[in-house]
């Protein structure tokens, strides 16, 4: 059996009704799972001896702007032994205060990726060890990659240092 099929059959077996969608666009296998089961799904993918997704390559999010469920978190993981990339998606239902479980307990590397996502999208990762902003200053009030943040920025949102008087 091809590895791609193995992943999908094993996922369906174990998480049957919690799998929202499985797509195969341009040969990228992508599995969407309900946010409640995300953490256990990630644990399963990493700890299953056949699948062995040991490396988390990237974590990010998508802001769908006008959809009811506004935010989707995206995880790219990689299996070194099987040489296979997998994408996991999880759509958060609460658009006002988006929250999702942190996967740092599964993959250590998710630490900074989740911090970056928190910084850019304002998605709170529950049980993250150190959820600080990655790039923007801690006092910055906005989340720049949200679609309602203008490209030109918001004047006055980043205070410049005071000029010393001569």
């Amino acid at each position: 059996m091809e590895f791609r099929e193995l992943v999908t059959t094993k996922t369906k077996e174990k998480f049957g009704s919690d799998v929202v969608d499985i797509t195969n666009f341009r040969d990228d296998l992508s599995i969407e799972i309900k946010p409640e089961r995300l953490l256990s799904f990630c644990k399963f993918l990493k700890e299953d001896s056949e699948l062995d997704f040991a490396m988390c390559v990237d974590v990010t999010a998508i802001d769908w702007a006008k959809r009811k469920n506004r935010f989707t978190t995206v995880y790219h993981i990689y299996s070194l032994t099987n040489n296979f990339n997998l994408r996991i998606k999880s759509t958060i239902e609460d658009a006002k205060n988006p929250e999702i479980d942190s996967v740092t307990s599964v993959w250590k590397s998710a630490d900074w990726y989740e911090r970056e996502t928190w910084d850019m999208y304002g998605i709170k990762f529950k049980n993250h060890p150190d959820l600080r902003r990655m790039y923007m200053p801690e006092t910055f009030e906005y989340y720049p990659l949200r679609k309602d943040f203008p490209v030109m920025g918001i004047p006055g949102s980043l205070p410049l240092p005071k000029k010393e008087e001569d």
Partner: peptide, 8 residues
């Protein structure tokens, strides 16, 4: 087309 891809 509508969709998402990752390439590294």
């Amino acid at each position: 087309p509508v969709g998402d891809t990752y390439f590294s």
